[in-house]
Design a protein around this nucleic acid. Sequence first.
DNA 1: ATGATTATTTTTGTATACAATTTTAAAAAT
DNA 2: ATTTTTAAAATTGTATACAAAAATAATCAT
Lengths: 206, 206
Amino acid sequence: MSTSKRASAYTQAYEYIREQILNGEIEGKTKLVEDRFAKALGVSRTPVREALRKLEEEGLVRDKRVVQPTESDLRDMFRVRMLLEGDAARLAANYMDPSTLAILKGCIDSSKNGNYEETMTSNKQFHDVIVEASNNTFMIETINRMQSIIYLFRKTVVYHNRPGLIEEHEDIYQAILNREPDRAEALMKDHLQADLDFFLHISRNR
Amino acid sequence: MSTSKRASAYTQAYEYIREQILNGEIEGKTKLVEDRFAKALGVSRTPVREALRKLEEEGLVRDKRVVQPTESDLRDMFRVRMLLEGDAARLAANYMDPSTLAILKGCIDSSKNGNYEETMTSNKQFHDVIVEASNNTFMIETINRMQSIIYLFRKTVVYHNRPGLIEEHEDIYQAILNREPDRAEALMKDHLQADLDFFLHISRNR
DNA sequence: ATGATTATTTTTGTATACAATTTTAAAAAT
DNA sequence: ATTTTTAAAATTGTATACAAAAATAATCAT
């Protein structure tokens, strides 16, 4: 986080605003005013402007507001995730090397034993490891983009971990370990479908 | 193209530069200098700057240069395309309505009968119609992003249409028309794989 | 009071300025 | 002639200024 040489005004602005958005510190309704951030950071509007454009392209901002993903957005994103992460799971079952497999196992363990924050991080990491093992830049980028938008949604939904989630991760891991591509893919898809259903269920009564 | 009220400087710059890139009018080596475009368009650097950032996020520009997709990039993009467009073809076989089916048929016809330019456009449109019929915003966006990068590649490769391409489109259309989701998906995947192979083959001896 | 109209303030889009950085060219040293 | 060093030029990142547009508040008419 803290680098020796001070980050550029643009980077500062980008990270500052992004953080605020992902932490849910900005209401979906409130307008993202350039000058407000500029003053808060002690920089000019120019770099703030660029940061906002970037966040807009990233899908976190639209029309100068924090994006509020709809149910339909969620469904769309999860359909794409199921296709891509399903394939990533398949690739993992075919090719993942032992050291990465060990890392994957580690995610499950620390998800089981850790505190709330650790559990959340490990669960996310479980997916990240599988996706990155695909070695497919575009796949990784695409999924990451959606992840942050989904995360946005999660924050608003007050995420308590879904029952069964860890067991599903374990099953996926086993399928990968046993070199069962079809099964790994199917389990990953089911897992994501269950996740989506959970999201939709919760978002209903809030 | 020509709107009544003059487009913003930013939009002008964005479209101008994007056009130049996609038409291959800018060498991959040459640096994209803000001031050059600013002067060419009679605007200041500010909007040009934003346009360049946008194009960068879009994947057409990196490090102030026009992106030159590598073979590995192509493979990665096509793998994602196969997954997503395969699914789109499946959805089309399940749900596409008669009027859209007619449009799809039209793409094939005008691809057969038209001149070079028309053929190229219709072939692209064939895919676009199927993808858009998915009604999945994120899927459409993701594919579009990759399409323009692939197009970039194609330009440099001097695209003459691949033998068999139209027949494959016809087969896909038939599978969709006959409501055969599995077949439609499989054919679409094969079609894209053949496309990729063709690209890689041509790019080899140039 | 409610809605329309006008005035005021805020915010944005773009231009311009300038120091810091990067690139390129020139000069010097090996 | 190639490499290193130094100087010059080009380019970028950021700040500031200001007119145009948008949002908000105030006034008036119904």
